[in-house]
């Protein structure tokens, strides 16, 4: 006789407590916006479960994190469309397994790491960072990740390496926006080597305790909290150490509007709008934008003696 145990459910199929507790919000969102937008974050959270063993970081802000719902439904990820609702609607096509991140260029030990090995490269830390978009809005996001420096040091950069280039995935089959032009795909971002090695700069693989939702740049993305959001490339497939300043996607798309550094700076306006204030998502009143997005005490020394109006 076959006796069925009530615990035949695989742990990964159990709705996580976080999701379960937010079921009303998901339902409300489903009614308001249409089902497709909410199915994804819900199912991904259920399927992927949580990361065990993450540590807190002293580099986290104490500010209140933006709602999970907002962090995962209001995104700029042009590979999936230019409307901020598009990524949540369309990024379900992105395949995040298998995924290889290759680190190459001016390094002693180039390597190609599978995403599941990358996640185990270093202990995952929760980093609660402010995120300021160049468009004038901001969020507070509890990322999960580890310092980019850990990865970079493991490949042993050569003396000639001065910059780091980050290349995002650009698969026309799964990323519809790539077929629409506008940006010279793949999306390329870059940092100076010292910026890339800075302890604030992380590779993120999750947020809110869960693997990154596709619309937030799964399975691995860059997070550089003192720069405008677009500097933090999503869905990264290649990291190259190079000698010269990389030509980034936005510098190519609109050279008069976007510079290489793109540090958050209330004093230097975008040519078409002011950067003096920002709207924190979820808040009614606008806030004053802070120099280096509030991280000046940690990063301002990187730019000592530089004219930030010139190197914007």
């Amino acid at each position: 006789m076959l006796i069925r145990h009530s615990s035949d459910v695989v742990p990964s199929e159990i709705t996580s407590r976080r999701v379960f507790e937010r079921r009303r919000e998901f339902l409300q969102a489903a009614v308001g916006i249409g089902l497709s937008e909410v199915v994804y974050p819900l199912s991904s959270a259920i399927a992927a479960g949580k990361f065990p063993d993450t540590t807190k970081s002293s580099l986290s802000t104490l500010e209140k994190p933006t709602l999970f719902k907002d962090v995962t439904s209001y995104n700029n990820f042009y590979e999936f469309g230019t409307d901020k609702a598009d990524p949540a609607l369309h990024a379900n096509t992105l395949k995040t397994r298998p995924w290889i991140l290759s680190v190459e260029g001016l390094v002693k030990r180039p390597k190609a790491i599978a995403i599941d090995d990358l996640i185990k490269l270093a202990p995952l830390e929760e980093r609660i960072y402010r995120m300021r978009c160049v468009e004038g809005w901001s969020m507070v996001i509890p990322w999960l990740g580890f310092p980019l420096a850990t990865l970079l040091k493991s490949v042993e950069p050569l003396g000639a390496a001065k910059y780091v280039e980050f290349v995002s995935a650009a698969d026309p089959k799964t990323m519809p926006g790539v077929n629409r032009g506008m940006i010279d795909w793949p999306y390329v971002e870059g940092l100076r080597l010292d910026e890339a090695l800075h302890p604030l700069t992380i590779l993120s693989v999750g947020l809110y305790g869960e693997p990154l939702p596709n619309q937030n740049g799964a399975p691995v993305r860059l997070v550089v909290p003192w720069k405008y959001g677009f500097k933090s490339g999503k869905s990264i497939v290649k990291i190259r150490l190079v000698e010269h300043e990389p030509k980034t996607a936005w510098m190519k798309a609109a050279p008069s509007e976007y510079g290489f550094y793109s540090n958050v700076n209330p004093e230097v306006d975008h040519p078409r709008w002011s950067q003096a204030t920002e709207r924190r998502i979820g808040e009614f009143f606008k806030r004053k934008t802070l120099a280096f997005n509030g991280y000046a005490d940690k990063v301002a020394r990187l730019y000592a003696g530089m004219d930030l109006k010139k190197f914007y």
Partner: peptide, 14 residues
């Protein structure tokens, strides 16, 4: 109606 029902997304003022 959408504002009342919080259906204007993450940035309702925009």
């Amino acid at each position: 109606w959408n504002a009342w029902n919080d259906a204007l997304g993450a940035n309702p003022i925009e």
